[in-house]
Computed example of a mutant assay.
Amino acid sequence: MRLIRGLTNLKRLSAEADSPLAGGCVATIGNFDGVHLGHKTIIEQVRQKAVELGVPSVVMFFEPQPREFFQGSEAPPRLMPFRQKFEALLAEGIDIVLCIRFDDTFRSFSAMDFIENVLIHGLAVRHLVVGDDFRFGCDRAGDFRLLEQVGQEHDFTVENTRTVTVDGERVSSTRVRKVLNVNGLEEAERLLGHPYRIHGRVVYGRQLGRQLGAPTANILLNRMPALRGVYVVRARLETGEWQDGIANIGLRPTVDGKRPALEVHLFDFAGTLYGQHLSVVFRHGLRDEVKFDSVDELRQQIARDFEHARAWLAANPAQPIN
């Protein structure tokens, strides 16, 4: 799979004599946060049509997401960071990912600017899969009907996305966030098609966990996570080995309270994880994130958390994780 970052690189690629877009493509547009069952169905629509036409399949999304650009810290939390989304799309068999920077310049594009510069001259799109409620361009003036009209003039077709429901309700990123917000890990797994997880690179921290008797692998998060609290987890190391552990995800209010992070303590693990990418699967919620009056009080609570986590693991042996 190929990653194209920005309109400049898209223009450069489309001008190459051996460009993979020389024959056009089949594309879809969205946030694809979580790459849940609904997203996977859309991706399969795109892949099937791309095979039929003999052209690449393309997923286009934006960084930051439009709601993050307009709402800042008030925007909904992300389900997965950029790298994890890219890897998830790779696993679904997408040929090209186009990531466009959403900034003041791009937001000023009219609907026709977007169609001409991105879809026609950039991607040479031959078939587009989007929801019939899709809006785009400055002031959200562009819609599904406009795409169909322009497509007739420029020889591309537009198809509505298929809807996936679970228990009679549409699967969406908003729905996944809602169930995670109340620790509905089992329901989230049904909506995603796999247990909820976060991937990230382990960075050097302030060594506070070690001082508290619980050395942790620290993964910084650029956005507030959909989950907050203390969880029993299972983590996959770069070696492919799985380790049980406990994790705190959120703002660490007793010792920090400023930047969101995922702190993972792996039981019975003595190696070093700095620089590695971990895949952390959330299995069971233990408690909410709490600000303690003292570090000593926090230390005592961590000891209780460890005891509760080990007891839960003993009663719930790990099963193979997909």
Rank of each mutant, 00 (worst) to 15 (best):
L180A: 03
G213P: 03
T216A: 10
Y196C: 05
R175A: 00
L192E: 04
L192W: 09
P195A: 04
L191C: 03
V203W: 02
R201P: 01
L191A: 01
E186Q: 15
Y204W: 10
P195M: 01
P215R: 07
Q211I: 06
I198Y: 08
G184L: 00
Y196D: 04
H199L: 13
R223D: 12
V202A: 09
L180C: 01
L191M: 03
K178W: 07
H194A: 14
L191V: 00
R206F: 11
R177F: 02
Y196Q: 05
R177K: 10
L208C: 08
L208N: 14
V179M: 05
Y196F: 15
L220R: 15
V202L: 01
L185S: 10
M224T: 13
G193L: 05
R190N: 07
R175Q: 00
H194I: 12
L221I: 09
R190I: 02
G184D: 06
L220N: 13
E186V: 08
P215N: 11
L208T: 10
G200Y: 08
N222Q: 14
E187R: 11
I198H: 06
R175P: 00
I219Q: 09
Q207A: 10
R190T: 14
A214E: 11
H199Q: 15
P225I: 11
V182D: 08
G213M: 07
I198K: 02
G213D: 10
L212F: 06
T174K: 00
L212V: 09
E186K: 15
N183Y: 13
T216F: 07
R177H: 01
I198F: 09
P195Y: 03
R223I: 10
L208E: 12
R210C: 06
L212W: 04
L185P: 06
V202W: 03
L180I: 01
G205D: 05
R177T: 02
G193C: 07
V202Q: 05
A188Y: 03
E189N: 07
N222W: 10
L191T: 00
P225A: 06
V176T: 03
K178D: 13
P195Q: 01
L220I: 11
N222E: 14
N218H: 08
A188P: 09
A188M: 02
G193F: 08
T174C: 00
E189W: 05
G213A: 03
P195N: 02
K178E: 15
L191Q: 02
V182Y: 11
G200L: 02
G184V: 03
K178L: 12
R201W: 08
V179E: 01
R223F: 15
I219H: 07
H194W: 15
G184Q: 05
L192F: 04
N218I: 04
Q211K: 13
G205H: 06
Y204C: 14
L191K: 01
N183D: 14
E187Y: 13
V176W: 01
G213T: 11
P215A: 04
R175Y: 04
Q207S: 08
R190S: 12
R190D: 06
P195W: 00
Q211C: 11
L191P: 00
V203D: 07
A214F: 13
Q211N: 12
V182T: 15
L185N: 08
